[in-house]
């Protein structure tokens, strides 16, 4: 499961933005929202006749596989970095 998401934005003539998001604490704070999202996903699975357990398992696999992903885009003096650890 992802532990830390790092977002860095460098723009010319502006202060650079550095954000480190600890996933677990944020997920705990947003727990009610997470529960609502899971419930909505279950309802969507039932509506579209998709196996709920399979769908939740596949979703969890995607979240678990995120660590190591890195997106680094530079254009001239502007740069955006999103890294998941």
């Amino acid at each position: 499961m992802p532990q830390l998401v790092t977002v860095k934005v460098d723009r010319p003539d502006r202060r650079p933005i550095r954000v480190w998001v600890p996933v677990l604490p944020v997920a705990l704070v947003l727990f009610p929202v997470v529960v609502l999202v899971v419930l909505a996903a279950i309802v969507a699975c039932l509506v579209f006749r998709i196996g709920v357990v399979r769908a939740l398992g596949a979703g969890w696999r995607v979240i678990s596989a995120l660590p190591g992903a890195r997106f680094d885009i530079e254009q001239g003096r502007t740069a955006v970095l999103v890294a998941i650890r």
Binding site: R61, A65, G68, A69, F71, D72, E74
Partner: peptide, 16 residues
């Protein structure tokens, strides 16, 4: 202007 895109995706994410 030089531009660079550097993306690293875990293969496990592709499988998922």
């Amino acid at each position: 202007e030089p531009s660079r895109v550097n993306v690293r995706v875990p293969l496990q994410l592709l499988r998922a």
